[in-house]
Amino acid sequence: MLNVHDIALSYGTTPVLHSVNFSLLQGQIGCLLGPSGSGKTTLLRAIAGFARVDSGSIEINGQQVSSPATTLAAEKRGVGMVFQDYALFPHLTVEDNVAFGLFKANKVYQKQRVDECLDMTGLGKMHKRYPHELSGGQQQRVAIARALAPKPSLLLLDEPFSSLDVSLRDTLANDIRRVIKDEQITALLVTHDQKEAFAVADEIGVFADGVLQQWGDAGSLYHNPANRFVASFIGEGALVDFASLDKTVLVRPEVVSICAGGQYKGKVVSRYFRGDHFIYALTVEKEQGITLHTELLSCKGELADAVDVDESVSFDVDLNKVTVLER
């Protein structure tokens, strides 16, 4: 459905994207995940048709829309977009905002489709309100309804939750996923928050420095990170060198266990309560054939076996479950 092939792009002389490749199937929800300034929003804008590409090509529904030679105008792509600041038109009511892209259809269809989109996003009674009368979450829903109304073949969402309260994000993320799946639309979302990415997306691409570091589902990113950046960016964990393996490995908290007679010695620096378990941060004694790349190693522990801060402990690492990264 969406094919991004070997895209490179620069602003003036500053390169922003380097040979990016990925594709989405019809109905899939993709996510571009990365720290701010990594180029993910630029990529989204290139797909929407707001930015030109220097090399490579973009195909939507088998039609080439971007190449260095030609850029199909954004208004002709049939790509819906939800903006970070929502960009609702302040002079129009909710229903007029949603109907904005339906100008080619007749009035009867317009009305029907607006009702449909507002119901779908849970805004059934907001027709006559103006954007400034709505809460942030409601504005967000209007933005989605507006983007969906013309039945775009592809929906792009730029940091859709970033200006919302944390408590709202989870419900909205669920709702958005449901709406997109109901409408059977292909969607691509940009975020810097991995929880959002995991909650909404089928496929996730991790971005850093304008390079797509890895493309895959949540499980493969977590358990098989392709490189150090992905390993440290996704989930908790520490990079550790084991003398016995002569390799650098990613150690997640759940593969470390504090136990009497463990192979390694360390000391508890802090303890976080996580509901059904604790997360400890440990310092590790030197000269035991294990070198941390960071200062602390996190470790998961049962509530029943609570260990106090400043206690010296011994622990084991389950080497069968660590992820080996090349040195």
């Binding site: 954004a74 049939g78 302040p90 100008f103 983007a147």
Partner: peptide, 24 residues
Amino acid sequence: NMDDAARSLGVGSVKATWRVHLPI
């Protein structure tokens, strides 16, 4: 972003001048 939003909804810049800019 409002300009871009209009474009992504299929409304070109000339039309957007009348439908978005002028009223605002």
